[in-house]
């Protein structure tokens, strides 16, 4: 049981058009990668919008079935999880974090409700006290406490606090893998680093592997161990984050690299202007 997640030749295509003029749109095209359970890592998937990042994430989370290819989580093919118990077991181990924390939570429900429901379903805490303890423990891991969150509605928390709460919720079931779909793109620049640093801590201290989906090359360079670059559903480059991002080989990676705004441009723009 050395492989945590293996994705093998994964393809997802969507049909476009009606009965006539039906065309296939391939969102994810023969993608393969694997994560080892012995070495927890932050695996970044990078691509621009429409490159199939989110489709790939949904398939890994088993909320969308692939057109072809196999995803194995700890050795079992996740498309064969039929019974509710098996699915629950899978969901305990693999947890999502979504892009926009203010949309991920229902504005009319209290935030703690999500934490307690996760504790009830995934951590098996049947008593009220047990749920509160589980929620508090998870919140402490992300630098919050239940006292700060209990009884609050999403609009009463800041974007950074809300995203941390979403991460805490994912941690309640002590997952082995977290799939984070653009977790910082909706968070303010000043709070972004606190979320990104939190992922590092999760990897180092809780030994959680993280699939970090982003279009931000700078944070990917900062936290991830390996990166996979997607272009129109195809893997164009994969390898160690430092190597790929500092010496890109594929023309697409080079283009992505060039299009990020760098601070060194301050000189160029303001001396020429």
């Amino acid at each position: 049981m050395s492989t945590l997640l293996s994705v093998d030749n994964l393809t997802k295509s969507f049909a476009r058009g009606g009965i006539f003029g039906r065309t296939e749109f391939v969102a994810v095209d023969h993608v393969s990668f694997s994560l080892e359970s012995a070495t927890p890592e932050i695996f970044a998937i990078i691509g621009e919008s429409g490159s199939g990042k989110t489709t790939l994430a949904r398939m890994v989370l088993n909320t969308m079935s692939p057109s072809s290819g196999v995803i194995r989580f700890q050795g079992t093919d996740i498309s064969r999880l039929r019974t509710g118990r098996d699915r629950l077991q899978f969901m305990r181990k693999v947890q999502p974090i979504f892009q926009n924390p203010s949309e991920a939570f229902n504005p009319l429900k209290r935030v703690d409700r999500y934490l307690f429901a996760s504790a009830y379903h995934f951590a098996g805490c049947r008593s009220r006290d047990g749920r509160e303890i589980a929620a508090d423990e998870a919140l402490k891991k992300v630098g919050l406490s239940l006292a700060e969150v209990k009884g609050r509605f999403p609009h009463e928390l800041s974007g950074g606090q809300l995203q941390r709460t979403a991460i805490a919720r994912a941690l309640i079931s002590s997952p082995a893998l977290i799939v984070a779909d653009e977790p910082v793109s909706m968070v303010d620049a000043s709070l972004r680093m606190s979320i990104v640093n939190l992922f590092k801590t999760l990897r180092d201290e809780l030994k959680v592997s993280i699939v970090y989906i982003t279009h931000d090359l700078a944070t990917a360079y900062y936290i991830s161990d390996r990166v996979l670059i997607l272009q129109k559903g195809k893997v164009v480059e994969m390898g160690s984050a430092r190597q790929v991002l500092s010496e890109p080989h594929h023309p697409y990676t080079v283009r992505l690299r060039e299009s990020i705004l760098s601070l060194d441009d301050v000189e160029r723009v303001h001396t020429s202007g």
């Binding site: 620049a189 709070l191 700078a218 500092s246 601070l263």
Partner: peptide, 12 residues
Amino acid sequence: LPRIGDLTPKIA
């Protein structure tokens, strides 16, 4: 601000 080529820890 994170930058490519800079791995010093950033404090939030």
